[in-house]
Amino acid sequence: MSAVLRARGLGKRYKQRWALQSCDLDVPAGRVVGLVGPNGAGKSTLLNLASGMLTPTAGTIEVCGGRPAAGVEQLAKVGFVAQDTPVYSALSVADHLDLGKRLNPNWDDAVARDRIRRLGLDPKQRAGKLSGGQRAQLALTLGIAKRPELLILDEPVAALDPLARREFMQDLMEAVAEHELSVVLSSHLVSDVERTCDYVIVLVDSHVQVAGDIDDLVACHHRLTGPRRDPDTLPAGQHVLTASHTDRQTTLLVRTDTAVHDPTWTVGPLGLEDIVLAYMTRPADAVRDTRPALEVLRCSG
């Protein structure tokens, strides 16, 4: 399958600080990709580079086979719902649909009107008077009715209450099922990502830590518990993400592409949340060493 997003050595620097560094990614088409990481890790930077709002300082990025925002044709392929889902507060809901219709070559007016009706939004309502959830839904409507190949959403539900969040995600998943969209969304709620995504990218301190199919990642990460032992004595194929010790016991979170046969270990499964947290809490020198992230792509469970 072709890559919907491909980055090679991608980097973005603001004055002295790198917001994103040496990022290599190949995200297959047809997936719902979750981009997770702590605040300030560079999630928004990556998404803004993918949507063409930013231009890279280093490396290249290709989205749907072209340079982001390179022209009208490229713009039509990618939808972007920015953080805080900005809308024109002085324009009405109907005006926003009108805007989408006039500015987008593939605009699906029926989908847009139908969504607004089902959401129970008054078309004459000024967008500035909408609640956060309604505003997000309006922005999502614009993104979906544009009929892009890839829809990028930057923390779309961060500001929403749990009910609005669920409704937003339901509508997004319905659109994915209906229109065969690829989606990249950032979130700091791993539970949302686990539910809605099938591919995850973990970004920490401006470096991609791991990227891959969620089921594969779950299949090749394990928790090992056993008698106290030096993690350096593990076989070559087992990479330790985190290690903790008591005076008698050692607990390791490891990534390995082969089964663990050592009988001294009790092998336990790891959920996505455990895996993500393990990558986030790794020591700083491991975070900046991006080589392991690429190896994981090959790990097939």
Partner: peptide, 15 residues
């Protein structure tokens, strides 16, 4: 200031 350029620049019109 209001971030609406994110909306405008991601429609099918170049900046």
């Amino acid at each position: 200031e209001t971030g609406t350029h994110y909306l405008a620049w991601n429609q099918g019109v170049t900046r």
